[in-house]
Design a protein around this nucleic acid. Structure first.
Lengths: 334, 334
DNA sequence: TTGAAAGCGCTACCAA
DNA sequence: TTGGTAGCGCTTTCAA
C-alpha cells in the first residue's frame, strides 16, 4: 500500500474530501457523529498520515520553528536545546537547529537558511553585536517572528528571553560574603564582550559595593600559565579567603586549568562559584557552587513569545525566568 | 511588497514561469545566456525566495533530515549535533532535532513526529534495544531511510555509523601498558547495557589478554562513596600503577566524583584514560588521555549513508570513522 | 450536515 | 530555446 491521499480516505468512507479534512482538523459540530466516526475508523484502519508539505502550502505555515545556537561547548546550549526540543514537541512543533560556532557570518547564513526553509519563528542565541548585526536581525524579524535567547542585541528591537542575572549574581555574592570573603573577583573572558557578560559585570560591581567588599572584574589571561600567575597575584598576602566568580562555563574551565598549575584550591584559600550548571560542577572541588538557569522556563517563555507575539505588535518585551543558586562545597569552606 | 510568486518574476522578466523555474534549479544548457541573465537579474533585484512548502509538495521531498539524540548530557551528542548541523547546512539540508532523554517511548514518538513532519531521512542515536524496538525501527525504516548513530539495534537491519572502537581501545590499552601498568580495569555503568559498551568491553578484554595484563570490566558502584570504596579495593596492595579506562564520559564523571572521596589520583597510583572528549578532559588531572571520535567524519558518513542509501538496497552496512587517542598527563606518569 | 471546486506555488512534461 | 499547463495533497469558501 503506497502513500494515501485524502481522496482515498474519502472514497473509502463514502464521503467527500472536504468532510475528511474537517475530521482531520477537528472542526467541531459541523457534521453528524455517525459520519465522523466512520471517517475516523477509516483513518485509523489505514494509518493515513496527511502530507505536511501540502498542509504547509495551503495553510501558509509549516509548524517548524528554528533554533540558532552560538556554541555547543557551552552547557547552556545543550540544556536549552533539550528544553526547547521537549517543549516544541509537546506543542506539535518541529525544531530546526543550526549552530553558528560563535561566528557572525555563519549565524547570518543560518538565519537565512532557516527562514528560506519556512520556519514559523526563530529562537536565536546570537553571537552578534553592533549596528550592522542589529539591522540584519531586525530585517529578518520582519520576515518571521524572532526571539533572542540569553544574549540581547541592542538596537535590533527584538524581544529577549533571559535569566534574572541580577538576582543570580546577588545570591552568589551574598553566599561568598557569608562565607567570610571580604574580597571577590568576577572572572571574565578577555576579548569579545557580550551584552550578557557586561550585564553580569554591572550587577557584580553593584552587589560588591552594597556589601562594602573590594575586588572587581578581571579578564582571565589566556595561556593557563599566565592565568595561574594572575591568580597568584590576586591572592598574594590575603588574610581572609578570596571569592572568585566565573562569569560563564568557559571561564570556569580556564580557571580550573590555571589552578592546576598553582597550589591554590577551593575551598581552601579560595571560594569559587560559577554560572552554568555543567555535569562536572558536581565533581570538581567536591562540588562547585553554581547559578543554574531555569531552562524549562526559558524554553516555554521563548516559544510563548514566538507564538503569542504573532498578534501583539507592542514594544519588544524581555521575558525573565528566575533560576537559582546551588550551594556546594567550593564556597562552603572546609 | 508582499511575498512574491514565481509568476510575478516571470511577468517581470517577460518569460514564462517554466523558464524561471529552470533558472532557479540551474538546469544548464536549456536556455540562452541572455534569458538566464535577465531572469537572474529580476530574482536578484526583487530578493525573490521560492516557497519551500510548494517545492516540497511538488518534488515529494522536503530537504530536511531528522536527528534523534539520546542524551544531551553526553558530550558525544553535542559534538555530533554540531558536526551534523554544519554538514547538513553545507549540503543545503535542514536538520530537525529531537531529544529522547534515553527514554524508549519518547524516542519512538520523536521518530513518528519527524516522519510525519516529512523528513527525507533520519539519524538515530537510539536508546532502544530488544525485538520490539528493532521491529519498530525497521518499520520506520520502511517509510524513510534511517541510519543508526553510535548505537546499533540488533535485528533492526538498519545501517550503523560508528567509530572504530576496536582500534581506539587497542591504542588506549597500549598507552596504559606502555606506562608500566600490569593491571587495567574498564569502568562501565551498572544497569542498562548498550551494544556499544558491550563492544568496547569485548575489545578491552581481547587487548588485555594479548598483552598478558590482568584486570577486567568493572561496573562502577552508584553512590560516589560506594564507588570510592570499590576503587580503593581495586588498587589495594598494588605494586605498579593501575590503569583505569572509563567506557564513556558519564562513567568518567562518576569516577572523578568518587576519586574526590579518596586519596587516589592520576597520574600517581592510577593511569586514567577515557572515551569522549569533553572540555574538562583538558583540565582534570592536568589533562586526561582521551579517545576522541572523528565527529565530522561520522557526520559525513551518516549523511552519505542516508542520501546514497536511497538507491542502494543492499544489506545494511556499517560505516566507520577512525578517531584517535590524545595522550595527556593522566597516563604519562610524573 | 455535506459536497464541489478553486487554488496555495512550484516543477516537469509535452508542444511549439 | 521557450511556453502552456496539469497536478502535487490539502483547506476552505460557497452552494446545496
Amino acid at each position: 500500500m503506497g502513500r494515501m491521499r485524502i481522496k482515498d480516505i474519502a472514497a473509502e468512507a463514502g464521503v467527500s474530501p472536504a468532510t475528511v479534512s474537517r475530521v482531520l482538523n477537528n472542526r467541531p459540530g459541523t457534521m453528524s457523529d455517525e459520519t465522523r466516526a466512520r471517517v475516523k475508523a477509516v483513518i485509523e484502519r489505514t494509518g493515513y498520515q496527511p502530507s505536511n508539505a501540502a498542509r504547509s502550502l495551503r495553510r501558509g505555515r509549516t509548524g517548524a520553528i528554528g533554533l540558532i545556537l552560538a556554541d555547543m561547548c557551552n552547557p547552556y546550549s545543550s540544556a536549552m536545546l533539550e528544553a526547547l526540543a521537549a517543549d516544541a514537541g509537546n506543542r506539535g512543533l518541529a525544531l530546526m537547529t543550526a549552530v553558528s560556532g560563535n561566528d557572525a557570518e555563519q549565524e547570518e547564513r543560518a538565519c537565512e537558511r532557516l527562514i528560506a526553509a519556512g520556519v514559523d519563528g526563530l529562537v536565536v542565541n546570537s553571537c552578534r553585536a553592533g549596528d550592522e548585526a542589529a539591522a540584519s536581525l531586525a530585517a529578518a524579524g520582519r520576515l518571521v517572528p524572532i526571539v533572542l535567547l540569553d544574549r540581547a542585541v541592542p538596537g535590533s528591537g527584538l524581544p529577549l528571553v533571559t535569566s534574572d542575572n541580577d538576582r543570580l549574581m546577588r545570591e552568589m555574592v551574598e553566599e561568598i560574603h557569608r562565607r567570610g570573603c571580604a574580597i571577590c573577583h568576577l572572572l571574565d573572558e578577555r576579548g569579545r564582550t557580550s551584552a550578557i557578560r557586561r550585564e553580569r559585570a554591572r550587577s557584580f560591581e553593584r552587589e560588591l559595593a552594597a556589601r562594602g567588599m573590594t575586588g572587581g572584574t578581571v579578564a582571565l589571561a589566556s595561556p593557563a600559565a599566565d592565568a595561574a600567575r594572575q591568580l597568584e597575584e590576586l591572592v598574594r598576602g590575603a588574610v581572609s579567603p578570596i571569592g572568585l566568580i566565573a562569569v560563564n562555563g568557559l571561564v570556569l574551565l580556564r580557571l580550573v586549568e590555571a589552578l592546576g598549575e598553582t597550589d591554590l584550591s577551593a575551598p581552601g584559600t579560595l571560594r569559587i562559584a560559577t554560572f552554568d550548571e555543567y555535569a562536572w560542577n558536581r565533581a570538581l572541588f567536591g562540588g562547585i557552587t553554581t547559578a543554574v538557569q531555569d531552562t524549562a522556563g526559558l524554553a516555554a517563555a521563548a516559544l510563548d513569545a514566538l507564538l503569542d507575539g504573532r498578534g501583539t505588535d507592542g514594544p519588544a518585551r524581555t521575558a525573565v525566568a528566575p533560576g537559582r543558586v546551588i550551594v556546594r562545597a567550593s564556597t562552603r569552606g572546609n
